[in-house]
Nucleic acid binder design. Sequence first.
DNA 1: GTCTATAAACAGATAGAC
DNA 2: GTCTATCTGTTTATAGAC
Lengths: 212, 212
Amino acid sequence: MVENQGSGARRRLTRAESRARTRQLLLDAAADVFAEKGYTGASVEEIADRAGYSIGAVYSNFEGKQQLFLELLSTRAESRIADAAQVLKDSEDAPGFRSGLGRLLTDTADQDIEFESLHAEFWLYAVRNPEAMAMLASRLQEARTGLEQLLEESLSERGESAAKPVHPLATIVFALFHGLVQQRRIDPESVPEDLFDQALSWLFAGWRADRF
Amino acid sequence: MVENQGSGARRRLTRAESRARTRQLLLDAAADVFAEKGYTGASVEEIADRAGYSIGAVYSNFEGKQQLFLELLSTRAESRIADAAQVLKDSEDAPGFRSGLGRLLTDTADQDIEFESLHAEFWLYAVRNPEAMAMLASRLQEARTGLEQLLEESLSERGESAAKPVHPLATIVFALFHGLVQQRRIDPESVPEDLFDQALSWLFAGWRADRF
DNA sequence: GTCTATAAACAGATAGAC
DNA sequence: GTCTATCTGTTTATAGAC
């Protein structure tokens, strides 16, 4: 007796898969609520509600609120930047590199408004809970490394590689990105769309001139 | 009958002054606790305790937790940067300007560790409570204006003023400052002491070259 | 003006039904 | 594996003593 499990185009929900789906829905909902209310302000009940489950479902899939947050921290911190950088790498050529980053800035500040809030929550949590700091540090380093590779490729296409390490440049670009996104959220007029490109243009020019 | 009020070097505590002193102690304690625990995580009781008062003292001097926080937001946001910039202005000449900012960065990240946490709390609060956004925006603008003046004076001493507006430069320096401080708190090795100076050097060089 | 005591609401986490 | 009910602790804010 196979029951109606193999019938139809549907059917594919192992217990493990069903559990994984629940976990995913809870994690998505948690990201939303943590971004909106902050770690302390977010309630487990609201996370569960928004995912379409009850409180019990959260505690049967995660140890608790803290572990749920840490799982997001370890898997989602900076992921948008890494992804977006990859998109830029695939879709743009060297001259479009900077304007691509400029668009990334305005998109992050104006459209994906949860990103920077969640980033700030991760940062504050790590600052207050040293045991989570190494985790965030390694995620940030991953993102910076991705950006470094992008920069190196972009520069090598222009025949100006190998002379200086781009490492500090990547760190600077990264810091500038977050700083400008934050400022644009508070006072959009003070951070016009092309300011990031402008800054990168000056920065790169000065960096190149410093090779001699 | 004057009572023993005019006697001794002490005695100077009008009710108004005594009240002002209590308010000040509560505000100082509040800044500490909000920085350590966050807006939601900070309890009125802990603020009162740390100031040496009880819960009732808070509610007799402020409308509540929210107004206490908003008073800090409206008076202390970015004040350290404005103050520090003024110190730099008074104590340093043009060539020392950049290294002065570099020291400000490491001090802010390593010594006055409450500053950036409180800044992040202000930012998150404003992002989540639009009625407070204009207040933070104006405080940020004040700080940026102060930095602008510093830049203009520093540049005019080198005879290269008036050609271009420094406004965008001030915004960039500001964003970079916060971005690097945040990154240094998480991963100090990725933000060496002279990175900020290095970045400013490249940025200014590129900016100058862009005049033509 | 500040304190103590308390009210009223809400949180994270657990136990047991299904 | 998920839900309902509940336990326990904590929170903001207020009322009334002093």
